[in-house]
Every structure is written in structure tokens, then in C-alpha cells.
């Protein structure tokens, strides 16, 4: 595979999706309704990435105590819910995941 072409292609599409909408909404005023809808985007997209990573880390559904991704993820959700802060969420989630993987799974 041509690696330079690969990196250039990935860089071009990624920059385009980041830059073009930013400039467009800076020039035309979007209706207030559009911004209300936009507020759901991060929640929907990041949840759609995260839930399969927790429930199917190997590509197949794996619900039970043998799945450290699920146990660590639930611990992180609890920590995030309780603390509303990033640092405890990340530290507790990674610690529970690592310990569970080592000791149980």
C-alpha cells in the first residue's frame, strides 16, 4: 500500500469535515432550531462508539462478568454520574478495568 497516499487521503477528508462546516456556520446564521438539534450530536455519536466497544469488545456480544470492558465501563459510568468530573471517571474506570482483567477475566 502507498502509505503517503493513505495518510494524505485520510488527512484531506478529516480536515474537510472539520473545516468546511466551521466556516459555513460562521458565515450564514443557522436557525436556533438547528443548534438545538446539534446539541445531541456528541452524545449520540460518542455513545454509538462506546456501547459496542463495551458490550462487544471482540466483535461478538459478551454480557457477563468475564467482560472486563463491560465491568470497567460500568464503573466509569458510575464514577462519572457520581462525580460529574473527568479525572475520577478516567482514573477509576481504568483502574477497575485493569484490576478486573488481571484478577477475574
Amino acid at each position: 500500500m502507498n502509505e503517503i497516499l493513505l495518510v494524505a487521503g485520510m488527512a484531506a477528508v478529516t480536515f474537510a469535515v472539520r473545516y468546511i462546516p466551521l466556516v459555513i456556520t460562521g458565515r450564514i446564521d443557522l436557525p436556533e432550531r438547528a443548534f438545538r438539534v446539534l446539541r445531541y450530536v456528541p452524545v449520540a455519536v460518542l455513545t454509538a462508539i462506546t456501547v459496542p466497544a463495551m458490550l462487544m469488545p471482540t466483535g461478538e456480544l459478551q454480557i457477563g462478568p468475564g467482560n472486563a470492558y463491560l465491568v470497567g465501563g460500568l464503573a466509569a459510568i458510575a464514577a462519572a454520574w457520581w462525580s460529574k468530573k473527568l479525572l475520577p471517571t478516567i482514573v477509576i474506570g481504568m483502574a477497575v478495568f485493569a484490576a478486573w482483567r488481571l484478577l477475574v477475566a
Partner: peptide, 29 residues
């Protein structure tokens, strides 16, 4: 790769402060 899961949880959970946000997350997930 679990670091990605835990980072995204840390970003998303505090955003889920209303019923519509919760529904959005449940449907997407």
C-alpha cells in the same frame, strides 16, 4: 483501547442531564 471507552464515558455522562439527552444516548447505543 479501553482508554477510549473511559474517555468517551467521561465526556458523555455529564451531558446526559435531561430526558431527551438520555433517550438520544439509549437509542444511539
Amino acid at each position: 483501547d479501553f482508554a477510549m471507552v473511559v474517555t468517551f464515558i467521561g465526556i458523555v455522562v455529564p451531558l446526559i442531564a435531561t430526558r431527551p439527552m438520555l433517550i438520544s444516548a439509549l437509542v444511539a447505543g
